[in-house]
């Protein structure tokens, strides 16, 4: 996908009346549209706003919610806040990294999961917490976290199978 979505960036710039102070909201909108911040879009944004590309990239790399690579089918936000940490988020992190070949901040080799540990999702009463595709899962254990992701991966597989070959079972 090297083509830029014609007009996306222009529309976004217009949405904020070309105000370069709104650079961050514009980049958030691009990420919502594209799933990440593609190089071509950032270049277009830089020239459209007359903001040096270096500045655009400094913002893109400073803030942790911006991604420069496409994201996987599912986004995992594992809370690493103090309470989750006290209640074993570290072990959960190790286990899911091991089981699903995840690297913090990156997408798994099969493109299934993007793994982003976050500093606190603000649901401390439920610790340890993991947010998968916007859904909060609290009170996790190492086992239940792995199980949850297994189920999600399997769910995808069965839908794919169903679409590909009329629902044949493995």
């Amino acid at each position: 996908m090297t083509d830029t979505n014609e007009g996306t960036v222009a529309t976004i710039i217009e949405r904020y009346q070309g105000d370069s102070g709104m650079l961050i909201p514009m980049m958030q909108d691009i990420q919502t549209e594209c799933g990440y911040l593609p190089q071509a879009e950032l270049k277009e944004l830089s020239s459209g706003l007359a903001v040096p590309l270096a500045d655009v990239y400094s913002v893109a790399t400073f803030y942790s919610s911006f991604r420069l690579m496409p994201k996987g089918d599912h986004t995992i936000q594992l809370c690493m806040g103090t309470v989750c940490f006290l209640k074993g988020a570290g072990k959960i992190s190790e286990a899911i990294q091991r089981e699903f070949q995840l690297v913090p901040g990156e997408t798994s080799p099969d493109g299934k999961f993007t793994f982003s540990p976050v500093n606190c999702v603000g649901a401390c009463a439920l610790a340890p917490v993991m947010v998968v595709d916007g859904q909060y899962h609290g009170g996790l254990t190492v086992d239940s976290a792995v199980e949850l992701l297994d189920k999600i991966a399997e769910g995808d597989k069965s839908t794919e199978d169903a679409q590909a070959g009329g629902g044949k079972k493995k």
Binding site: G21, L23, I24, V51, S65, F66, V118
Partner: peptide, 25 residues
Amino acid sequence: INRGAGAFVCGESTALMASLEGRVG
């Protein structure tokens, strides 16, 4: 409303304002 972009330091007043101006916090 402006949404933060994931930087703890932006809770600091001057960093927050830098972020509102479209710069690194």
